[in-house]
Every structure is written in structure tokens, then in C-alpha cells.
Computed example of a mutant assay.
Amino acid sequence: MDRLGTELPQRGTFGWALGGAALVFAVPVVRTVSAALDETGGAAVGAWAMAAVMALVLVVVPLLLARGILGRHTYVSDDAVSVVSRGEVRQQVAFADLTDVRVAATGQGGRLLPRENVLLSGDLRTGTGTVLVSRLYVDTLQPLLQRLAVEVAARPELLRGELERDSFERAVASSR
């Protein structure tokens, strides 16, 4: 993926936590399946239904979420930001096509739940929309913020209002 630029270091905390939770919750699912094997008649139907719902909610859904989180990669190049999932570019916006940049950095989540996000709006190479780059998925936003600082210096209209400008400047200053 060298043609896409530098990959932002992936943050796997939530993916691994969801995988671990699925593993822990697999124990009661196995116990429920074991109990369902011993049932007969109408009770067996209820037991198997319960086992199926538990398996879906407690094991399958967390594993699918973990797969989505761990499979999302964000790249920053000199001309674009790309989000790749399962080996395919899902979202890509060129810096020249940006119409709006928003930085949300509340910091209220601490280290476990970082609340730092960058929303890039414009004409995506996959349609018009917004690309979200979040600290929930990556360890650092520094390469993206440094590249955006150059773009914002050349086109200050990308930041709408003083509040957006202050948030952006704080995020850039903290990323150095």
C-alpha cells in the first residue's frame, strides 16, 4: 500500500478487547448449548433459541466488530487521505478537493477512550461525503494534522469560524 502514503499507526485496543470479550462470553454460550443438548420437547426449542441468540449477541457480533476495527487502515499521502478496509480503498479524499475540515478533540475519554477526531468533507474519489479519522482507530493523528496544517495555511476557508480554527490549532500544537 506504499502508493497510498504513510499508514497511521493502527490502534487495536478496542478490537482486541472485543475479541477477548467474545472469548469470555463463549463460555456461557457453550454451557447453554450443553444444557440444550440435554433438553427434549418444547424446552429443547427454547434452550436452542436461547443458545442461538446468546451466540449471536455475545460472540458473533463482537467478533464482527473487532474484525471491522482491526481491518480498517488509514493512509496519508502528499495529496490524499485514504481509508482501506479488507484490502480495498473504501474512502479517499484528495486534499485539493477538501471543502471543510473539522477537528473535535474533547479529551474527555482519557487514554482508553480518546475523543480526538478529524472530519474531512469534500468530493471523495468514491462520491461526495465525509472521511472520519478517529483516535479510536489510530494511535496518532500527527501526520494527518501536519499535512492539514499546510493545506489550511494555503486555504484558510477550510476552517469555518474561530471555534474551528482554535480547535484545529490546539490539535496541531499538541501533535508536535
Rank of each mutant, 00 (worst) to 15 (best):
Met1Gln: 12
Arg3Trp: 13
Thr6Ser: 12
Thr6Asn: 11
Thr6Trp: 09
Arg11Ser: 03
Phe14Ile: 08
Phe14Pro: 01
Gly15Ala: 00
Trp16Asn: 02
Ala17Asn: 01
Gly20Lys: 05
Gly20Asp: 09
Ala22Pro: 10
Leu23Lys: 04
Leu23Met: 10
Ala26Gln: 08
Val27Ile: 14
Val27Leu: 13
Val27Phe: 10
Pro28Glu: 03
Pro28Phe: 05
Pro28Ser: 06
Val29Gln: 02
Val30Gly: 03
Arg31Phe: 04
Val33Lys: 03
Ser34Cys: 03
Ala35Pro: 05
Ala36Ile: 12
Leu37Lys: 15
Leu37Thr: 14
Thr40Ala: 12
Gly41Ser: 04
Gly42Ser: 15
Gly42Tyr: 14
Ala43Arg: 10
Val45Asn: 09
Gly46Asp: 13
Gly46Cys: 10
Ala47Asp: 07
Trp48Pro: 02
Ala52Asp: 07
Ala52Met: 11
Val53Leu: 14
Val53Gly: 03
Val53Asn: 08
Ala55His: 04
Leu56Ile: 03
Val57Trp: 08
Val57Asp: 05
Leu58Pro: 04
Leu58His: 02
Val59Pro: 05
Val60Tyr: 02
Val61Trp: 06
Leu63Thr: 06
Leu64Tyr: 13
Ala66Met: 01
Gly68Ser: 12
Gly68Tyr: 07
Gly71Ser: 10
Thr74Glu: 07
Tyr75Ala: 09
Tyr75Pro: 11
Tyr75Cys: 09
Ser77Asn: 12
Asp78Cys: 07
Asp79Tyr: 14
Ala80Ser: 15
Val81Phe: 00
Gly87Val: 00
Gln92Tyr: 07
Gln92Ile: 13
Gln92Phe: 06
Ala94Cys: 13
Phe95His: 06
Leu98Lys: 10
Asp100Ala: 11
Val101Arg: 05
Arg102Trp: 00
Ala104Asp: 14
Gly107Asp: 03
Gly107Arg: 09
Gly110Ile: 01
Arg111Asn: 15
Leu112Tyr: 15
Leu113Lys: 13
Leu113Pro: 10
Pro114Phe: 15
Arg115Met: 15
Arg115Ile: 11
Val118Phe: 00
Val118Trp: 00
Leu120Asn: 02
Asp123Val: 15
Gly127Cys: 07
Thr128Asn: 06
Gly129Phe: 13
Thr130Gly: 11
Thr130Pro: 09
Leu132Cys: 10
Leu132Tyr: 08
Leu132Met: 12
Ser134Leu: 00
Arg135Lys: 15
Leu136Ser: 05
Tyr137Ile: 01
Tyr137Ser: 07
Tyr137Glu: 03
Asp139Ser: 08
Thr140Phe: 04
Thr140Arg: 13
Leu141Tyr: 13
Pro143Gly: 00
Leu144Ile: 08
Leu145His: 09
Leu145Cys: 06
Arg147Asn: 01
Val150Phe: 06
Glu151Gly: 10
Val152Ile: 13
Val152Ser: 02
Ala153Glu: 04
Ala154Met: 11
Arg155Thr: 08
Pro156Lys: 09
Leu158Tyr: 03
Leu158Pro: 02
Leu158Glu: 00
Leu159Glu: 06
Leu159Cys: 07
Gly161Ala: 04
Arg165Trp: 02
Asp166Leu: 15
Ser167Val: 08
Glu169Pro: 05
Arg170Gly: 00
Ala171Ile: 05
Ala171His: 01
Ala173Ser: 12
Ser175Arg: 02
Arg176Gly: 06
